[in-house]
Amino acid sequence: MNTKFQNKIAITIIRVIAALVVLILAFLIGRILLQGLPHVSWHFLTAPSESFVAGGGIGYQLFNSFYLLLLTLIISFPISLGAGLFLSEYAPKNWVTEVVRMSIEILSSLPSVVVGLFGFLLFVVQFKMGFSILAGAIALTFFNLPLLTRNIEEAMRAVPNLQREAGLALGLSKWRTITKIILPEALPGIVTGIVLGAGRVFGEAAALIYTAGQSATSMNFSDWNPFSPASPLNLMRPAETLAVHIWKINSEGIMPDADAVSAGSSAVLIIAVLIFNVLARYIGNKLYRKLTASK
């Protein structure tokens, strides 16, 4: 068997595997959308859910999902950025750094239900936050921190050392070299980390059952005072997200149209994740071109 033939076989196998991955993804997304989209309407997206009667919507759950995602990213991204920057650019090669990296890997392998129970015991019970958006956001920060940190670290490590040497040779300090050269160049990888983390947060249910709760309280969308009990911005109110709602209605079995609501909610969840991915990559590419002056 000559080398060219072996090369053709290897390339063919790789292409088949890549096509198989795309087909599996297309099958999953297509099946969920085909089953769920017929049940999606403006009323379904905006109306509150109903427990014992048919015709409810997912308005509160959809808002809670985006609100919780935003809060989690606001809390976790600065911490992850600082940790990734330190590990990539400043951390010495010693046992302390290895312990930090090992701790991050262990934290990333924890099951989400364990993170949820930890958040329940610490934030809900010990800190007396109750089932609240804030408790859920902090629990999801622990859940999301390792993934974001590793992605940011790897994105910065992928920038060639010549870029660092060029910045230092021009008289820039190490900090300015990082902020003006390394971070803009690593931006696409950082955006990828944000997208992956956001997808996990948006679809997470187990950790939120024990922290954010399983009830969607009534909200007054004309009241934007974060200290008001009925305000959508209130951090201390319980907040059932879309993923928790799907799990709840399928486990309780008290909703007459549970199958339709579950299918529609799954379709909305998939569409929301896809839209977030597209928007995040679009904004990331725009920022990358602006910061690096590339076309």
Rank of each mutant, 00 (worst) to 15 (best):
P229A: 11
Y282Q: 06
I106L: 15
A205Q: 11
V191W: 03
V113T: 12
M156G: 02
L269W: 01
V16R: 12
A207V: 00
I178S: 08
T292S: 06
I29V: 15
N7P: 00
R176S: 14
T141M: 15
I271F: 10
V40H: 02
T141V: 06
E185F: 01
F52H: 15
T46D: 01
S222F: 13
V113A: 11
D259P: 00
P48H: 05
E153T: 10
V96Y: 07
N64L: 02
L291F: 14
L274A: 12
I11K: 15
G56S: 08
Q61F: 05
I249R: 02
P92Y: 05
F86W: 11
K290F: 13
P160S: 07
A263H: 06
A18Q: 15
K4M: 08
I209Y: 08
F27P: 01
G264R: 00
N2M: 05
F52T: 14
N234K: 07
T141R: 03
L233N: 04
F66T: 08
V113P: 09
L242T: 05
Q6D: 12
K174G: 01
S222R: 08
R289M: 06
L274K: 03
P188N: 14
L172F: 03
G30Y: 10
V273K: 02
V125M: 13
I17M: 10
M156L: 11
K93P: 00
V99F: 08
F143S: 06
N285T: 12
A135F: 04
G197C: 13
S103F: 10
E252V: 05
S218W: 07
I209S: 05
L145H: 04
L235A: 11
Q61E: 14
L168E: 07
T192R: 04
D223I: 14
A216K: 06
T141C: 15
W175N: 13
A230R: 04
P92A: 09
L291A: 11
N94V: 07
V261G: 06
L122G: 00
R157I: 13
W95M: 09
S132C: 10
I270T: 07
L37E: 00
I270D: 00
R200E: 11
G199S: 09
A293K: 13
N151Y: 02
S88V: 13
V124C: 09
P78S: 09
N7F: 01
S215R: 09
A258R: 10
G264L: 12
I32R: 00
V53W: 09
A267V: 12
K286D: 00
L279F: 15
A216E: 06
A169I: 05
I13A: 09
I58N: 03
K128Q: 12
P160M: 04
A155E: 02
K4H: 11
A258E: 10
F52Q: 15
D259W: 03
T292Y: 08
W224A: 07
S76M: 06
K180R: 13
P226L: 13
R176M: 05
V191P: 03
V16T: 14
P146H: 02
I133M: 14
L233T: 07
A155K: 03
G197M: 07
I13H: 14
P160H: 02
N7K: 10
L87C: 12
L25A: 15
A260V: 04
L148N: 02
L274G: 01
G136N: 09
L233A: 11
A272N: 06
T211W: 08
G130K: 05
K286N: 04
L168M: 10
L69Q: 08
